Simulated assay, not measured.
Amino acid sequence: MTMWVFGYGSLLWNPGFEVEETQIGVMHGFARSFCMRSIHHRGTPEHPGLVLALDEQKGASCEGVALRVKAGTEAETLAYLRERELISSAYLEKKLAVHLNTGDEIEAVTYVIDPDHAQYGHLDLEEQAQVIAHAVGDRGPNTEYLHNTAAHLVELGIEDADLNWLSKRVESLCS
């Protein structure tokens, strides 16, 4: 059976698994948001960073990339994604509908924020910039995560005004 994964953050530029096909798509009912405190990959428990999550919101939508997993690697891909994305149980793994730019609708493995988890929370954009500018985790600086994601969205022709603003603001804070 064909397996798709929906990428909206680091999966855009670092999927970590073999991708057979990539399609731009939209997921309705969720917004891309720096609403997850990162205590592993882009921060520490003492100095959490921020990573993107899909936050369920009525009327929202998130444009991202549907990644079709290479046939025959589905089980190992799912195991890899679970180890990577469920490291602190702040994400919930779901299969959700993605509307592709081709007009097709597919179901994709998607990682969304658990709003009841301790790492969930909202900060205004300036507070996000201040956190991202200084946080570092075991996968590197939080700035790298932000800048790579923002640049890849631009490259894909996906407009995200908040990420563009954050990227410029964090750049000015770090210079």
Score class of each variant (00 low, 15 high):
residue 21 E to M: 12
residue 21 E to H: 11
residue 22 T to W: 00
residue 22 T to A: 02
residue 24 I to R: 10
residue 24 I to D: 07
residue 24 I to E: 01
residue 25 G to V: 10
residue 25 G to I: 04
residue 25 G to R: 04
residue 27 M to W: 11
residue 27 M to G: 04
residue 27 M to F: 08
residue 29 G to V: 01
residue 29 G to W: 06
residue 29 G to E: 09
residue 30 F to C: 09
residue 30 F to R: 03
residue 30 F to T: 03
residue 31 A to M: 05
residue 32 R to Q: 08
residue 33 S to V: 09
residue 35 C to L: 01
residue 35 C to Y: 03
residue 38 S to N: 07
residue 38 S to F: 00
residue 39 I to C: 02
residue 40 H to T: 11
residue 40 H to E: 06
residue 44 T to P: 07
residue 45 P to Q: 01
residue 46 E to D: 15
residue 46 E to F: 07
residue 47 H to I: 12
residue 47 H to E: 11
residue 47 H to K: 13
residue 47 H to S: 12
residue 48 P to S: 00
residue 48 P to E: 04
residue 48 P to F: 00
residue 48 P to H: 01
residue 49 G to L: 00
residue 50 L to C: 07
residue 50 L to M: 10
residue 55 D to N: 13
residue 56 E to D: 07
residue 58 K to E: 14
residue 59 G to T: 09
residue 60 A to F: 13
residue 60 A to P: 13
residue 61 S to A: 15
residue 64 G to R: 01
residue 64 G to D: 01
residue 64 G to F: 02
residue 66 A to R: 02
residue 68 R to T: 13
residue 71 A to E: 13
residue 72 G to L: 09
residue 72 G to F: 12
residue 73 T to H: 03
residue 73 T to S: 03
residue 74 E to P: 05
residue 75 A to N: 10
residue 77 T to W: 08
residue 77 T to N: 11
residue 77 T to Y: 08
residue 79 A to F: 10
residue 80 Y to F: 14
residue 80 Y to G: 04
residue 81 L to T: 09
residue 83 E to C: 15
residue 84 R to T: 03
residue 85 E to Q: 02
residue 88 S to M: 04
residue 88 S to I: 02
residue 89 S to V: 01
residue 94 K to G: 05
residue 95 K to S: 14
residue 96 L to M: 04
residue 96 L to Y: 05
residue 96 L to C: 06
residue 99 H to F: 05
residue 99 H to R: 11
residue 100 L to S: 10
residue 102 T to K: 14
residue 102 T to D: 15
residue 102 T to G: 14
residue 106 I to V: 14
residue 108 A to D: 02
residue 108 A to G: 01
residue 112 V to Y: 08
residue 114 D to I: 00
residue 115 P to R: 10
residue 117 H to Q: 11
residue 117 H to M: 15
residue 118 A to P: 10
residue 119 Q to H: 11
residue 122 H to F: 15
residue 125 L to N: 10
residue 126 E to I: 11
residue 126 E to Y: 14
residue 128 Q to D: 00
residue 130 Q to V: 12
residue 132 I to N: 14
residue 132 I to Q: 15
residue 133 A to F: 12
residue 134 H to W: 02
residue 135 A to L: 06
residue 136 V to H: 15
residue 138 D to T: 12
residue 138 D to K: 13
residue 139 R to M: 05
residue 140 G to A: 08
residue 140 G to H: 12
residue 141 P to G: 12
residue 141 P to I: 01
residue 141 P to E: 07
residue 142 N to Y: 10
residue 143 T to D: 02
residue 145 Y to V: 08
residue 145 Y to T: 02
residue 147 H to W: 12
residue 148 N to P: 00
residue 150 A to P: 14
residue 151 A to F: 09
residue 151 A to P: 08
residue 152 H to W: 09
residue 152 H to A: 13
residue 152 H to C: 10
residue 153 L to A: 09
residue 153 L to E: 06
residue 155 E to K: 15
residue 156 L to N: 12
residue 156 L to V: 10
residue 157 G to C: 05
residue 158 I to D: 11
residue 158 I to R: 06
